[in-house]
Simulated assay, not measured.
Amino acid sequence: MFLTFEDRPSDSTFVERVWRAHTIDGGVFHSIAESNLELVVTRLPGLTRVTLRGPVTKPSMADCPANGQWIAIRFRVGTYLPRIPTALLLDHNSLDLPVTADDRFWFEDAAWEIPTFENAEVFVQRLARHGAVGRDPAVGAAILGDRQALSRRSIQRHFLHTIGMTHTQLRQIERERFAVDLLRSGSSILDVVSDAGYFDQAHLTRSLQRLTGQTPMKILRKEAQLSFLYKTIQPPTAMID
């Protein structure tokens, strides 16, 4: 695999995980569906880029250049940008933020030091104090099965505003990522069907092809480089169709 990842979990209210990656040789990888907002720092020879990435609802192929370094802050589901609707960033409609010569970038009318792998939480806390990121507690509660006396329509409005997709789409993506992790850890296809809550093998295959572009067998054999993955836990019952 030409793309090497390292990641760590976060105890921040806003941040789920921080990851970094690097390449020596370039290549093409499979970008799979994911449900999180990210702020990504890209460093290539002669180029630094800071990008806001939205959730992704379908797979695609992506070129990955050689000699690259990336650091990303993956926000928790339910974290949002008050002045930028998440739906505008959906499916690779990413936003590149202006970068200055002194290694800062402009966001929300302020110049910020580019965060590092080590200080990501401190950086995000500063964003929160500035009002540049927020949390929607109704989304987090709904994921855990607590609807907080909200109607189904109201919950959907919260999801569409905060993460740019419906609760059902989120459930499907989270289950798909859990299934991919199981397969790449060596679980059999039939065990994954049972453990991830699919009806049968055909249901698993359709879901993974729609959201990763790969069959379960190809994922099990690790035939292709996939986008960033990490060890996940089984989604709560409320997350399963």
Results as ranks from 00 to 15, higher is better:
residue 77 V to F: 05
residue 180 V to Q: 06
residue 122 V to N: 10
residue 160 L to R: 12
residue 65 P to N: 07
residue 110 A to G: 05
residue 210 R to G: 00
residue 207 S to E: 09
residue 77 V to Q: 13
residue 49 R to C: 13
residue 18 V to H: 10
residue 160 L to C: 01
residue 151 S to G: 14
residue 226 L to C: 07
residue 191 D to C: 00
residue 214 Q to R: 11
residue 53 R to D: 07
residue 122 V to R: 14
residue 57 T to S: 14
residue 139 V to R: 03
residue 131 G to T: 07
residue 80 Y to V: 10
residue 75 F to N: 05
residue 241 D to C: 09
residue 23 T to Q: 08
residue 40 V to C: 12
residue 150 L to F: 09
residue 121 E to I: 00
residue 55 P to M: 00
residue 116 T to V: 04
residue 57 T to P: 00
residue 44 L to G: 04
residue 141 A to D: 10
residue 9 P to T: 06
residue 89 L to Q: 11
residue 153 R to G: 05
residue 11 D to G: 08
residue 93 N to Q: 13
residue 8 R to V: 11
residue 189 I to N: 05
residue 107 F to S: 12
residue 100 T to H: 15
residue 121 E to K: 00
residue 213 G to W: 04
residue 27 G to C: 12
residue 213 G to P: 07
residue 80 Y to H: 14
residue 163 I to R: 09
residue 236 P to M: 13
residue 88 L to P: 00
residue 74 R to A: 10
residue 149 A to T: 11
residue 171 R to E: 02
residue 143 I to C: 09
residue 171 R to T: 13
residue 13 T to P: 11
residue 240 I to Q: 12
residue 89 L to W: 08
residue 60 S to Q: 10
residue 203 H to A: 14
residue 171 R to A: 13
residue 170 L to N: 11
residue 129 R to C: 08
residue 32 I to M: 14
residue 176 E to G: 00
residue 184 R to P: 02
residue 100 T to R: 11
residue 76 R to P: 10
residue 28 V to M: 11
residue 55 P to F: 00
residue 188 S to G: 14
residue 232 T to R: 15
residue 127 L to M: 12
residue 219 I to C: 08
residue 48 T to N: 02
residue 150 L to E: 10
residue 29 F to Y: 15
residue 110 A to L: 11
residue 25 D to T: 12
residue 35 S to L: 03
residue 213 G to A: 02
residue 109 D to F: 01
residue 49 R to S: 15
residue 22 H to F: 13
residue 163 I to F: 01
residue 218 K to L: 06
residue 183 L to W: 08
residue 164 G to S: 02
residue 227 S to H: 03
residue 27 G to N: 13
residue 103 D to G: 01
residue 124 V to C: 07
residue 104 R to E: 13
residue 160 L to A: 04
residue 192 V to I: 04
residue 148 Q to F: 04
residue 130 H to C: 07
residue 47 L to K: 09
residue 30 H to V: 14
residue 126 R to I: 01
residue 43 R to W: 03
residue 229 L to W: 04
residue 86 T to S: 09
residue 226 L to D: 04
residue 163 I to E: 03
residue 91 D to W: 08
residue 216 P to W: 08
residue 115 P to M: 06
residue 92 H to R: 13
residue 88 L to Q: 08
residue 211 L to T: 04
residue 55 P to R: 00
residue 197 G to L: 08
residue 176 E to A: 14
residue 72 A to E: 12
residue 50 V to D: 01
residue 98 P to L: 08
residue 112 W to K: 07
residue 188 S to H: 05
residue 180 V to E: 03
residue 110 A to F: 07
residue 136 D to R: 12
residue 45 P to M: 07
residue 63 D to F: 13
residue 171 R to P: 01
residue 79 T to K: 02
residue 13 T to A: 15
